[in-house]
């Protein structure tokens, strides 16, 4: 039993968007083009959300990396009519089954974080890019919903590797692509059920908060508030 979660330290995060690029490459997210982007249909598993507060000249803007929050009580799963999205009790991950999804987009509307993405058209990928497809992640097609999976394919691989070495999964064996890429080490990933894990310690810190916490969806992505002393 694990409860995989993430902590993003907004003091360390510089909104460089490396996480987004790394995520998209790892997960074969198709590159967009002006037409797709112009119609607000770019698929982004991670977005930088500018949260604006106050007025000039005392304005403040928080740039918050936004990805699937892997809620413990996910509102998206309840509404799916065909069970194309599921909550893994043993891992604490919210998954999406592309081969089951009928593309009704009820989940995308039920998600209060708007992090679910829809394939409005067949991904326009030039043939030359296909060679660089990550074989661990299935490519999507038009008409289905997709979203951040916390790179669950890496978990499967890490478990396999640990099993073949006859050992338990160690901290750091399973890290999503965004966390791995983050140049400023702003993202910490791990098992929230392990009280001594770095991620649990940070999630307990006084600076920790979650987005839309009052909705009670119990997100497993925590943020560490900006400013002040980090410790």
């Amino acid at each position: 039993m694990s409860r995989w979660g993430m902590v993003i330290d907004l003091n360390r995060c510089t909104a460089c968007q490396a996480c987004a690029a790394a995520c998209h490459q790892e997960n074969n997210v198709p590159p967009s083009n002006p037409k797709v982007a112009g119609g607000d249909r770019s698929i982004r598993w991670i977005d930088i959300l500018p949260m604006r507060e106050d007025e000039y000249p005392h304005a403040s803007i928080s740039l918050v990396p936004l990805l699937c929050q892997h809620c413990e009580r996910p509102p998206c799963i309840k509404v799916c009519p065909v069970g194309a999205t599921f909550y893994s009790e043993s891992e604490g991950l919210v998954g999406q089954v592309y081969s089951r999804c009928i593309g009704c987009r009820y989940c995308t509307n039920a998600c209060p974080f708007t992090v679910r993405q829809f394939n409005w058209s067949e991904p326009a990928v030039p043939d030359s890019y296909l060679e660089g497809t990550n074989p661990d992640v299935s490519r999507r097609y038009k008409g289905v919903v997709e979203k951040c999976s916390f790179c669950s394919h890496r978990l499967i691989r890490a478990r396999d590797e640990a099993a073949s070495e006859r050992r338990k999964l160690l901290p750091g064996d399973y890290i999503p692509a965004c966390v791995e890429a983050c140049p400023t080490d702003a993202m910490t990933f791990g098992d929230l059920d392990e009280p001594e894990a770095e991620v649990s310690k940070l999630a307990r810190s006084k600076r920790a908060f979650r987005l839309l916490e009052d909705l009670g969806t119990e997100p497993k992505v925590y943020y560490l508030r900006e400013g002040g002393n980090s410790k």
């Binding site: 509404v79 999804c101 009928i102 009820y106 919903v145």
Partner: peptide, 22 residues
């Protein structure tokens, strides 16, 4: 409205009564 109209019958085959759509 379905992205995958060919899968419309999944609603019968794999229907989940928890969903208001069902």
């Amino acid at each position: 409205d379905l992205g995958r109209p060919d899968r419309a019958l999944f609603v019968v085959q794999h229907g989940r009564l928890q969903s208001p759509l069902l």
